[in-house]
Nucleic acid binder design. Structure first.
Lengths: 209, 209
DNA sequence: TTGTGTGAAACTTTTCACAGCC
DNA sequence: GGCTGTGAAAAGTTTCACACAA
């Protein structure tokens, strides 16, 4: 409970969370231990324990962890039970696929607005979400108070959208545009870059001969 | 040119590549130095030099790197000039968005097949790509010889699809399903997990109070 | 006896600092 | 003087091994 955990620990916590959910949905063993998690997730048991120890002591020596209890604790740590408001910037192929994605609602993630610059899209509703003029984003976000913004615009405008979001006090951004963005330290940015991921694969295929 | 570079170095090389492309498209300075790249990409200059040094010496002391030359070298290292054949497993919202994505063709990435289990989709063509019965994937991939497979199926079936792909000698997989997959060491797996990324953000929002 | 929590060791990646070349 | 390439130091992450609690 002392040092601040690195991103990768949070990432693994999310894996534990997902597995515990599945686990509890199916069989319901009251306790679960790090070795069992290890076998199932292919993550070393000591790493799982170390990850958890960042946040306190949840287990019972000789027994393991209470399944329900651990799940609850992890949900709590990750903040997944709180409701969060989202917006999606860019309603192209990807933005539209995101709007259709059911996983948001199921996880207390509320899409409260979408933005695009295409005049044909502005004013329409997609999956119950209104598409606003992205040029009017500042005014709209001042009222709406979004927690998380998703950028799904072309790379060329991604940085300026990010700047505008920061200006609107958005403190967490998930970027899908293939561009390296820069935001102030108080804003959390995560980027998912399809082309970069593919390049990692082509490199591997080359290097492995 | 000795130790094998970590994934993250390849990832950064992809960023350098993209920036150099933009750079050369616009202004054309014949040379470029690590400090300039550093300022633009917000990556320390010494890290850029170190990254490049994994693959040899491309620069001239006192001058920098030949822009064209460096671009060419990086393209070569990453294997982006070679043509690669892809398939997409799962033609839901995301799979469809991927099929519509123009970036593949522009980068020598050829989608040669798509697979789905939905009888209404099987046999149809989307963006010039035929959707096959995913149950018949093994037979089809034996003929088609795909280099890279993209998994965009529900999480529940992702592992079995991955197993089938490995069986078909696919050696690189990009997984979008929210599931932790396991593949043999000779297969490269990269996963992009929307829900996990979002959780990273909600954690940050919680932790930062 | 079983399984957690944790210091310490091992390893990996980043940062530094500077020799050497243009 | 300016900039690369690189050993060596520092920082960060994973692995180990074991004290201790049930």
């Amino acid at each position: 409970m002392m040092k601040t955990p690195p991103d990768i620990v949070i990432h693994r916590l999310a894996l534990y969370l997902r597995f515990l959910e599945d686990c509890i949905r199916e069989n319901t063993s009251a306790t679960i231990n790090s070795q069992y998690l290890s076998r199932k997730l292919h993550i070393p048991a000591h790493q799982i324990r170390k990850d958890l120890s960042f946040f306190g002591k949840f287990g019972a020596a000789g027994i393991g962890y209470g399944s329900q209890d651990l799940l609850k604790k992890i949900r709590d740590i990750l903040g997944v039970d709180k409701p969060w408001d989202l917006c999606i910037c860019g309603v192209g192929n990807l933005g539209t696929a995101l709007l259709m994605y059911k996983g948001f609602r199921e996880n207390n993630l509320n899409i409260v607005a979408a933005f695009d610059s295409d005049i044909r899209k502005i004013g329409r509703r997609k999956q119950g979400v209104t598409v606003y003029d992205i040029g009017k984003m500042p005014g709209i976000l001042k009222r709406l108070r979004v927690d998380i913004a998703i950028i799904a615009t072309p790379a060329a405008v991604a940085q300026e959208i990010a700047d505008a979001l920061v200006e609107c006090r958005v403190r967490a951004i998930l970027n899908f545009a293939p561009a390296k963005l820069t935001v102030p330290a108080h804003v959390k940015l995560r980027s998912v870059d399809l082309s970069t991921e593919l390049i990692n694969l082509t490199y591997f295929l080359c290097a492995a001969r």
